[in-house]
Design a binder for these strands. Structure first.
Length: 802
RNA sequence: GGGAGUUUAGCUCAGUUGGCUAGAGCAUCUGCCUUACAAGCAGAGGGUCAUAGGUUCGAGUCCUAUAACUCCCACCA
């Protein structure tokens, strides 16, 4: 028997312990049911705190996992932690006061690993308290040895395939972090700037050439000037030579359609490299490559008097100098878009340094096609992916000049410079700590280690292999691909999803997964993403769960439209709390009449009992339909609708037969007992992916003995062999409407609902309505029902006079 | 500039391949202690479905245009 009040604290803790001790959610690879494999996103470890966004999206995944488990799948729901990135490195560096330096890489890695012993329990505790059914006993961290091994192996195999190469080419560079970065790490920000109109000279002419530029500090790297061949004002200059101000360098004047006549002065100066357009032009015209900016963000010797100055400083100074020499004739304040590093906000420069690149541009079409083949939920997210893929302009630069991360398993021969790769059997290696166990083909025995580390996505893009390795120990293996599901938020479509698809194609020529589920953000009342840095979180997720219960928070997280942002509102949490309480109360009622319930369907069933079971069939159909589309919120609404219908209409009707078999008959009671039991069982199961604790509590208390089940969560949904009967459904609706009419009448007359109705006259109803006469009389406290034929339906109610 | 999304009741949002009088919860108002539940129950009011056209027997839903807000991409002369 259930207690009068539902104590969520006691109950939730009890089941967490039970689920853990009994390995309820264990994935058994030998189990031969169809597998459902989830490529869970490992949360980034940037400190010991989690935020509400975590529990929001991870609950979506858990709801899907639980649903698939109860639909007969063998569900693989792993968990990992991403600590192979700058945020983790910075956190540990700060905490242990380790100087960021190449030589401290190993120390930092080992501290990061040991720090996981402090942090994983905090994350695990929150996930556990939320009722997450992922495996928290056996997790991975992305900086750990097995993962380093997989990541380095991926690098070596792609190298062997010729898909990764080291080349000195233009690279997006953050002067602040002093590392190369990938285009996905760029934020384009609109900033105020100044357009400077300056004079170039023209060789063998006294005329001046007016050029507009926002980056005068790059003048020393100016390699040519473009004008439009259609430009009446300038076309005659094509083929002549311009002379740059201050530096007095001679550069060719070239005609190019892309130089727009009405933009700026119509004359473009091309430098190496002011922007991506400059890069393109450098390639097209084989222009010389000049380096005006050094990796430390300061000007090079090339810049002459500006050498050693920072870019912005240099800009100010060269403008002064141009003014002094009367070479600057106009300045205009403008706003323009600037590429900045998303992590530090620093303006990006384009430099030429040797870097490792994974080929993407040559595989653009394959990646695009893979994006088409994946099922995206919601569907519209596919366009984001395709849009990004189509606009791709860079190969993937995977080397980072950072001190923390997974090193490249590469040395360079001191003599001939040849790249020497580690043997796969020796992985993971840190080339700064060990030497290759071979000699170079040139006979040289001395090597220089590669000093860089790999981009964190080079590793994260391998999570389908990394998480399966927890079970199979097969390392970089693709035999389980495609997995079933990649869940993540929409910000990761062009990053993590993109790189994972690319990697999976390069290695295995397979899709990494068949379906992608994209969650929105948890946002505050103003619509802003809830995050630590914004400080708009009213309470920690731990506090939220302690205060409102895991089931209630899960209800909030599950009651969504997939892909849309959701406001964290008190009101939604209150609704969840009311639902939980109502489930408890309704269950208490049904369970109190369980004794003597027939095990099999009685031959004679009352029509309203048949009706509610028929409604269940419809709900079940819709539930599955929405779940198949990963619309967990719409599926939940279907269940809720049925549940309230069950409580407000069905129970009110059935309770009379349950309480008073001496009046309504024993078989009418049995019929109600059977129907309400099936309904409760089915509803608990349908609610259980969302509200795993209260449903487990009731189910285990009431139904588990029947089939000797260990948990509602390892049971299957009820199989309903019936098909939906629309006529029966309409009949029930008609009865509900009559009941509603009577209630309304009493309400308007300010009398209690139990007030007796002397006569109820039903005009124009089908004869069939008489089948429900007994239930109608009971629920409405009606003495006599009179049936009249009429063209239109109407109802007359006469209350009993005093 | 390109792409995507959103716009439905005071608020937060559902509304599937076009189909009965456009729904839910909250809020508001009225009534009711009814052998599960007063943190409850019953009932009522509240909408020109952003705007303007169009297709159709029929449009919240499809088409065209416009507006506002949000996101992604591009935009550094």
């Amino acid at each position: 028997m259930l207690d009068k009040k539902y104590d969520f604290k006691k109950t939730e803790e009890k089941w967490h312990k039970y689920w853990d001790e009994n390995d309820i959610y264990k994935f058994d690879p030998q189990d031969n049911r169809p597998k459902y494999l989830i490529d869970t996103p490992p949360p980034t470890i940037s400190g010991p705190n989690l935020h509400t966004g975590h529990i929001f999206s991870y609950t979506h995944i858990d709801i899907v996992a639980r649903h698939k488990r109860m639909s007969g799948y063998n569900v693989f729901f792993p968990m990992g932690f991403d600590n192979n990135g700058l945020p983790s490195g910075r956190y540990v560096q700060k905490k242990y006061n380790i100087h960021p330096d190449q030589s401290n890489r190993a120390e930092l890695v080992s501290k990061c690993l040991s720090e996981m012993d402090n942090i994983i329990p905090i994350y695990a505790e929150l996930f556990t308290s939320m009722g997450q059914s992922c495996n928290l006993k056996h997790t991975y961290s992305t900086i750990s040895s097995p993962v380093q091994k997989i990541s380095q192996q991926s690098f070596i195999e792609l190298y062997k395939k010729g898909e990764v190469t080291r080349r000195k080419s233009a690279t997006l560079w953050c002067p602040e972090c002093r590392t190369a970065i990938a285009s996905s790490e760029i934020d384009t920000i609109t900033k105020p700037s100044v357009m400077n109109y300056i004079y170039f000279g023209i060789k063998d002419s006294s005329k001046k050439l007016e050029v507009a530029t926002t980056r005068p500090e790059l003048l020393s790297a100016c390699v040519c000037v473009f004008v439009n061949p259609q430009d009446e004002k300038h076309k005659d200059l094509i083929g002549k030579t311009a002379i740059s101000p201050i530096y007095q360098k001679e550069v060719p004047i070239i005609g190019n359609d892309e130089a727009l006549i009405d933009k700026g002065t119509g004359v473009v100066m091309c430098c190496t490299f002011g922007d991506e357009k400059d890069m393109e032009w450098q390639k097209t015209y084989s222009l010389p490559v000049l380096e005006a900016i050094l990796p430390n963000g300061r000007m090079s010797e090339l810049a002459g008097f500006l050498a050693g100055q920072k870019v912005k400083e240099a800009r100010t100074n060269i403008i002064e100098k141009l003014k002094e020499e009367n070479l600057l004739f106009k300045q205009e304040e403008i706003t323009h878009a600037v590429a900045t590093h998303e992590r530090c906000g620093t303006d990006i420069e384009i430099l030429t340094k040797p870097q490792w690149f994974i080929n993407l541009l040559s595989h653009k079409q394959e990646i695009y096609d893979a994006g088409l083949k994946c099922k995206w939920h919601p569907q519209t997210m596919q366009k984001r992916f395709l849009n990004w893929t189509q606009g791709l302009k860079w190969d993937w630069c995977i080397s980072r000049q950072n001190y923390y991360g997974i090193p490249f398993p590469v040395w360079y021969c001191k003599n001939c410079g040849k790249e020497i790769l580690a043997d796969i059997k020796d992985l993971p290696v840190d080339p700064t700590k060990t030497n290759p166990n071979k000699t170079c083909v040139c006979g040289c025995n001395e090597f220089l280690p590669d000093q860089d580390v790999m981009d964190t996505w080079q590793t994260s893009s391998l999570t389908p292999q990394i998480c399966m390795n927890l079970v199979t120990q097969k390392g970089l293996d693709g035999s389980h691909l495609p997995m079933s599901l990649r869940p993540n938020a929409h910000d990761n479509v062009r990053v993590w999803d993109f790189y994972t698809i690319a990697k999976s194609l390069l290695h295995f020529n397979k899709l990494p997964w068949t379906d992608v589920m994209i969650s929105g953000y948890a946002v505050d009342e103003k619509g802003e993403k809830i995050s630590k840095s914004k400080g708009n979180e009213k309470q920690s997720p731990q506090q939220l769960v302690a205060l409102r219960s895991a089931d209630v928070v899960r209800y909030w997280a599950g009651n969504i439209s997939m892909g849309l942002d959701t406001v964290l509102a008190e009101e939604q949490l209150t609704n969840g709390a009311k639902l939980v309480q109502k489930i408890w109360n309704a269950s208490k009622f049904v369970i109190s009449f369980l004794d003597g319930t027939p095990n099999t369907k009685p031959k004679e069933m009352e029509i309203m009992d048949k009706w509610i079971l028929n409604e269940l069939v419809k709900t079940n159909e819709n539930f599955v339909k929405y779940m198949d589309k990963y619309e967990i919120g719409l599926a939940l609404k279907e269940v809720e609708k049925l549940f309230w219908n069950f409580c407000d209409n069905y129970i009110e009707i059935a309770k009379n037969r349950l309480y008073k078999p001496e009046i309504y008959g024993e078989s009418a009671k049995k019929s109600a007992q059977y129907a309400s039991k099936i309904m409760l069982k089915a509803l608990l199961k349908l609610f259980s992916p969302y509200l795993p604790h209260i449903t487990e509590e009731i189910y285990m208390d009431t139904f588990s003995q029947e089939n000797n089940e260990k948990s509602i969560h390892t049971s299957n949904y009820l199989k309903l062999d019936k098909t939906f009967d629309e006529k029966l459904s309409n009949f029930g609706q008609t009865v509900s409407d009559i009941v509603s009419n009577i209630r309304g009448f009493k309400s308007q007359n300010n009398v209690s609902l139990k007030t007796e109705v002397e006569t109820l006259v039903l005009c124009g109803y089908d004869d069939e309505i008489k089948l429900a006469e007994q239930d109608l009389k009971a629920v409405g406290s009606i003495k006599t029902i009179i049936y009249k034929s009429a063209k239109e339906k109407s109802i007359e109610i006469t209350l009993k006079s005093e």
